[in-house]
Design a protein around this nucleic acid. Structure first.
Lengths: 108, 108
DNA sequence: ACAGGATGTAAGCCGTCGCTTACCGTAAGT
DNA sequence: ACTTACGGTAAGCGACGGCTTACATCCTGT
């Protein structure tokens, strides 16, 4: 459920498409597979990867297995992104200040 | 600079490490490579990928090439993430409501 | 207990990707 | 001009990852 695993899981286009298919709500495996250009086992494998990354969860419902989005995965990604964003921004500020000083050096 | 390219670029651990190395500020290629367990050409290749994803930019500085973080890439990722988050949350709400109704069905 | 539908899993194939070594171009300093 | 440091690029190799087909598993209704 680390952000690295989340990034790796979402990197593949097909897998990301499976994930985004769940954005509108829970779906059983077959329903997902039928709306995609790959085989059902392929979808199963993608769902397994997404699950291990903490991006989806599943519940048994009779003979079918219904998958839905697990907030944990995206949450981890979001936290990393926010923190990174702040630090990078601070670095930019420092950079700008440095640039100003260097500019003044040249003026002399 | 689409979010898909950003995700793909950040999926690789080594490449992500290169990227995170720039979080604290601009660095020339050699400085990055010396702080990593891979060769300098490998770092160059990673920087190229990061650049194509809109995650970093570079400027020539004498004989060296200084790389720094480009906000565009992370911005695209953040926008996708925020939107996704909202939609998924709405789907959860709908799901909860549906669950309540089904529960009442069973009670009868 | 059995049949059928739904899903996970194993094996194998093939393309992609990351890494290394070798080479080339370029910009400064002497 | 020559040298040296710095960095991008090409070629090739090995590993990993995604897809398919085939098989195993589980649940439900009859």
């Amino acid at each position: 459920m680390a952000y690295g695993d989340v990034l790796a899981a979402l990197a593949d286009p097909t897998r990301r498409r499976v994930f985004e298919r769940l954005r509108s709500g829970p779906r059983p495996v077959g329903a997902i597979a039928r709306s995609m250009p790959v085989s059902r086992p392929a979808v199963s494998q993608h769902l397994k990867a997404l699950k291990e990354a903490g991006l989806v969860a599943d519940r048994q419902e009779g003979t079918r297995r219904v998958y839905f989005i697990d907030p944990h995965g995206l949450g981890a990604l979001r936290r990393w992104l926010d923190q990174f964003w702040d630090e990078a921004l601070a670095a930019f500020q420092a950079e700008v200040e440095l640039g100003k000083r260097e500019q003044k050096e040249k003026d002399r």
